[in-house]
């Protein structure tokens, strides 16, 4: 088990810098790695590595549907395409392309969806994806991850390069709360237990992992001990771990920067209802579209705060 961070400090390196650095490393080590962008290179910092891998970093312009199709064509000839754009363009905008040209054709595509949920901030409702995890989860044999810090992002990028299939990684662009040491290992289909407690299990992904840890600190002071799980692998999901902690704590709260339909909360509810019916609450976005605002304001608006997690635990009347 990881030590709970004593303080919840942001990592010094931004997630986008991790992406650019890792793509540069992968491209230099493997000439088959081709990174594709849709006119958001300067948003994700790949513009800083452009000159170093000119034949392996292609700006496709503002045409996401074509970018997915071009990636499929590259994959047909053995290349390993990494595609990046904002999460809603990577999924909502190009869904049929991802589904048919990518997954149905059984091709090898790595997709980074950035600016997840409320972290799209001032780009507002058109750019705010609360549905992307659900969309990609619906695609047969897809792999869906939401990364919570830079160590994990770098690890997962290196990992998916070596695995075949459709891999979708959801991330924020800027600094995440640092959760993991550089030597941490992340497996597909596994969750990470970050804190042990016998009264309730908080299962979270992305930015809501740190919020859940903070909630657990406060719950402890209220006499409620919470387990906190970073469920970065949303598909496949860690059924054994969910069942183990649901059996132990008898109560589960999920927390996600995403619609509660389709994402982590749905995935956990599906596991519990089939394997270990357990009282649960889902913290997340409910029947709403995005809007402009700073992330802190938006977290409050959409009920994605530490307080919302604690309220959900209280609703379950654990003690």
């Amino acid at each position: 088990m990881i030590q709970t961070p004593q303080s919840y400090e942001f990592d010094k390196i931004e997630m986008r810098q991790v992406y650019a650095n890792t793509i540069l490393e992968l491209a230099k080590n493997n000439s088959n790695v081709i990174a594709l962008e849709a006119d958001l290179m300067s948003a994700i910092s790949t513009n800083k590595i452009n000159g170093q891998i000119p034949k392996q970093l292609i700006n496709c312009g503002i045409m996401e549907a074509n970018m997915v199709g071009v990636a499929a064509g590259l994959a047909l000839t053995g290349k390993i395409p990494f595609l990046h754009t904002f999460a809603q363009f990577a999924t909502r905008r190009a869904f049929d392309q991802l589904f048919v040209s990518g997954a149905y054709a059984k091709l090898n595509l790595k997709i980074l969806g950035s600016d997840s949920g409320v972290t799209a901030e001032h780009n507002g409702g058109t750019h705010m994806a609360f549905e992307d995890l659900g969309l990609v989860r619906l695609i047969p044999n897809s792999h869906v991850f939401e990364v919570s810090d830079g160590t994990m992002l770098g690890y997962m990028l290196r990992k998916v390069e070596k695995e075949y299939g459709i891999h979708y990684i959801r991330t924020i662009r800027k600094n995440a709360v640092k959760l993991y040491d550089e030597n941490e290992v992340f497996e597909t289909g596994k969750g990470k237990v970050l804190r042990e407690g016998g009264d309730v299990s908080l299962i979270a992904s992305g930015i809501m992992v740190a919020e859940s840890l903070k909630a657990a600190d406060l719950l402890h002071k209220m006499g409620i001990d919470a387990t906190v799980i970073d469920m970065y692998s949303i598909k496949p999901i860690d059924i054994d771990l969910i069942v183990k902690y649901a059996s132990k704590t008898k109560a589960v709260v999920t927390a996600e920067n995403h619609n509660i339909i389709g994402g982590l909360g749905s995935a956990v509810a599906e596991v519990l209802s089939e394997h270990c019916p357990t009282r649960m609450r889902r913290v997340g976005v409910k029947e709403q579209f995005g809007q402009v605002g700073k992330a802190d304001y938006l977290k409050e608006f959409y009920n994605l705060t530490v307080k919302d997690i604690i309220d959900a635990v209280k609703e379950l009347k654990i003690k």
Binding site: V70, G73, Q97, S101
Partner: peptide, 11 residues
């Protein structure tokens, strides 16, 4: 969609 894949193969 096929035409985009063809473009990817040619690229």
């Amino acid at each position: 969609q096929g035409i985009s894949a063809a473009v990817g193969v040619a690229l």
